[in-house]
Computed example of a mutant assay.
Amino acid sequence: MVDLIILYLIFSSFSTLSLFIIIYQIVKNPDIVEKWASLIYKLFTQIGIFAGWARKRYIQRDIQSRINIFVRRIVASIPQMEFKKCRIDWVDLDKIDKKTFLENDQVIIRLSNKAEDNENFVHATYHFVSTSLLMKAKRYISPSQRESLDLFVTGKIIEEEKIAVRDYYLENYAFPNFLKASGKIKEYYEKYQIIEELGHFYTILLNELDLIGGKVYGKVKDASLIVEVDQLIEFLLELADKKVGEDKNLNFQRPNSNLAVVIVGKNIKVHETPEVYERYINGKILPNNFNSIYLVGSFINKNLIEQLSARCLGSYEILLRKKHPVKLKYRDGSDEYHDTYTMVLRKRGNGIHG
C-alpha cells in the first residue's frame, strides 16, 4: 500500500493519458509496481530522504521484483508449474536466525539489514530457488541433480537480473558446491549450460521434471527416475551436439519411460514424406502410453507439428505451444539461432500435479 501511495503522489502530476497508460501497465504487470517502487526508494536513499527506511524498502522491493519477474518468464515455458512468489522480511540476527519458509503462495525469505546488499540478493535468490523450484520432483531425484539445478537456476536469475553480484555468487555458492559429490554437481551444471544454450532447458528439461514430480509425488522413491533424468539430459546433449545435415536418431523414447521427444526436423521427410512422422506417432508413440510427448521442430514446420499433435488429442491434452530460439550447429563449425516450435502434450487423466 505504501508503494502505491508513493507512486500515486509521483505520477499524479502526469497527464490523464499518461496516468491511464501507467495504470494499465500496473494492472497488466503487477510486479512492475515493486520495480518502480524500488527505483524510487533507491533515489530516496541516495538523496538522504528517510535513508535507513528507504534503503531497506529498496533492497526488499528490488529483490522481490527481480525474482518475481524472472519467475513470470519461466512460467511462459512451464505454464503448469506451481511457482511461488518471493517476499522478503527483515530480521534482527541478534534475536532470530535467518531462514526461509513457505506461507500460502509465497516463499518468505528472512534477511538481515546488517548484511551487505550483494550477500542479501544472492542469499535470497538461492534460497528462493531451493525452496520453490520443482518442490515435488526434488524428493525423487539425486542430491547432485537437485543441488546442481538450484545452483544453475540461481545463476541464471543473477545473470539476467543482477549481473553485478555474479562474482559473489560464484565465490560463495557455486564454486564451493562444485567440489561436492565428487564433482558431479559441477558436471551437471556444465551440462545444463549446454542444454540452456541449445534452447531446451526450460521447455523440455524443467518442464518434464515438473510433470514427473506431479505424477510421482507421494509415492515411494524409485531410483529409476534418477536414471531417466540422466537419460534425458544425455539425449539433450546429443541434440545440442548434432550438426545440421547429420543423419542421427533425433527421437527420445525408452521402455517404461515417462516421456517421448519427437524431433520434426529432417527436411526430406517434412516436405516429401510427412506421413513418416504420422506412422511413427501412430506406431511407436501412442501405443506406449507415454505420460508426456514433446513435438519439436523448426517454426516453418509448425503446421505439420500441429497436425501430428491432433493425432494425439484423443488421449492427450496440449499444455504448451511455444516459439523460441534454438542454437543450430553447422559442419563448418559455425552456428546460429533459428526459431523453433515446441508443443508439449500431457496424457489425459493423469492430472498435472496430482
Rank of each mutant, 00 (worst) to 15 (best):
L4N: 13
L7N: 01
L17S: 13
L17Q: 13
L17T: 13
L19P: 04
Y24T: 09
I26S: 08
V27E: 14
K28M: 08
D31E: 15
D31I: 06
I32E: 08
E34R: 10
K35V: 08
Y41I: 00
K42N: 10
K42Y: 11
F50L: 13
F50G: 09
R55C: 10
R55Y: 05
K56Y: 09
I59P: 05
I63H: 04
Q64M: 10
F70W: 09
A76V: 10
P79H: 05
M81G: 04
F83Y: 04
K84W: 03
R87M: 08
V91K: 06
D92L: 02
L93R: 15
K98S: 13
K98T: 14
K99D: 11
K99W: 00
T100H: 03
T100Q: 03
F101W: 13
E103D: 05
N104A: 12
N104K: 15
R110C: 14
R110V: 00
L111H: 03
K114W: 04
K114Q: 14
N118A: 10
N120E: 07
N120L: 08
A124I: 01
K136L: 03
R139P: 00
E147T: 07
D150Q: 06
F152H: 05
V153F: 06
E160G: 01
K162M: 10
K162R: 09
A164T: 13
A164S: 15
R166D: 12
R166A: 10
L170D: 08
L179P: 06
L179C: 08
S182T: 11
K186Y: 05
K191I: 03
K191G: 11
Y192G: 02
I195C: 02
E196F: 15
L198M: 10
L209H: 02
G214T: 03
Y217S: 05
G218M: 02
V220C: 08
V220P: 05
S224K: 15
S224G: 01
S224C: 05
E234C: 06
F235V: 08
G245M: 06
E246C: 04
E246Q: 14
E246I: 04
K248D: 12
F252V: 04
R254W: 09
P255D: 08
P255E: 03
P255C: 06
N258E: 11
V262S: 03
I263L: 14
I263S: 13
V264Q: 05
K266P: 00
V270T: 02
H271R: 10
T273V: 12
E278F: 07
L286R: 05
N301A: 06
N303P: 02
R311T: 06
S315H: 08
S315R: 11
L320D: 00
R321Q: 12
R321E: 12
E336I: 09
Y341K: 00
Y341I: 06
Y341H: 03
T342N: 03
R348V: 01
G349H: 02
N350Y: 08
